[in-house]
């Protein structure tokens, strides 16, 4: 049986298109997205407010640069294992939360660094002028710094989310969940007869990652304030 035949026959197995049965591909897509989105949202709630406030006061710049380096050095596989180990020791169900929290931890560095940088690179003259005309510090943050930093913050969210989508699959190695990683890991375990599952999972997760990247890129572009968009358009035209 060729690999393609294996793929087709795997896709034709019972419950493969079910949203509710664990064998279903749609079920795994939903699971994958639940972990990814929850992980990202938690990370956004933690990292973004902290970063923009610190950046506004020009405090903790070392954190911004150290965060990404630390984030890179800690292997995501190790991160998943550690959270899983902690959950299993604490007798918590290991399917959803350990993986999700590991994804939050994974997303913190790029979100923090980008949010910090995004606020930091806002033209000081713009901030000075807004202070000079009587904006309170909170108003400067909300009306000037955050809108201008939004594209950079969203770029951080994009990097974080694509990384999460890719890494959730690895979670399948250690837990029952792991979204689209499930068929890949289970397929590997079956050896040569499992290639259909491996390939289906691989295609689906690659597609999901690229789709997330594309969606966030669109979002990022839309978030560029109109005045800046025109500025960069003229800047490009000048070259």
């Amino acid at each position: 049986m060729s690999i393609f035949d294996q793929l087709v026959s795997w896709l034709r197995e019972p419950n493969r298109w079910s949203f509710s049965h664990p064998d279903g591909l749609p079920y795994r897509v939903i699971e994958h997205l639940q972990v990814s989105v929850t992980g990202l949202v938690l990370a956004v709630l933690i990292a973004v407010p902290l970063a923009v406030v610190l950046a506004h006061h020009r405090k903790g710049a070392f954190l911004a640069s150290a965060a990404v380096n630390i984030g890179r050095a800690i292997p995501s596989f190790g991160l998943i294992i550690i959270f899983w180990l902690a959950a299993s020791r604490a007798n918590i169900d290991t399917t959803f939360w350990p993986l999700t929290l590991a994804m939050t931890a994974l997303a913190l560095p790029p979100l923090f660094t980008n949010s910090y940088t995004g606020v930091q690179i806002v033209d000081p003259a713009t901030v000075e002028a807004s202070r000079g005309v009587g904006f309170t510090e909170m108003q400067i943050l909300r009306r000037v710094e955050i809108p201008l930093a939004l594209p950079v913050i969203l770029a951080g969210a994009r990097i974080a989310f694509v990384q999460i989508v890719a890494t959730v699959a690895i979670g399948a190695i250690v837990s029952d969940g792991g979204g689209l990683g499930r068929p890949i890991v289970d397929g590997f375990a079956q050896g040569a007869t499992g290639y259909g599952a491996v390939l289906a999972g691989g295609i689906a997760v690659a597609f999901l990652a690229l789709l997330s990247e594309a969606l966030f890129t669109v979002l990022e572009r839309a978030a560029v304030p109109a005045g800046i968009r025109r500025m960069s358009a003229t800047a490009i035209a000048r070259r």
Binding site: A125, T126, E128, A129, V133, G134
Partner: peptide, 22 residues
């Protein structure tokens, strides 16, 4: 300070217009 500043016009060399505002 912010109340005081709202009653005093302030113009700087770099102008500091909000690039995202009309």
């Amino acid at each position: 300070a912010h109340v005081l500043r709202r009653g005093i016009g302030y113009v700087i060399q770099q102008v500091g217009l909000f690039p995202h505002h009309t």
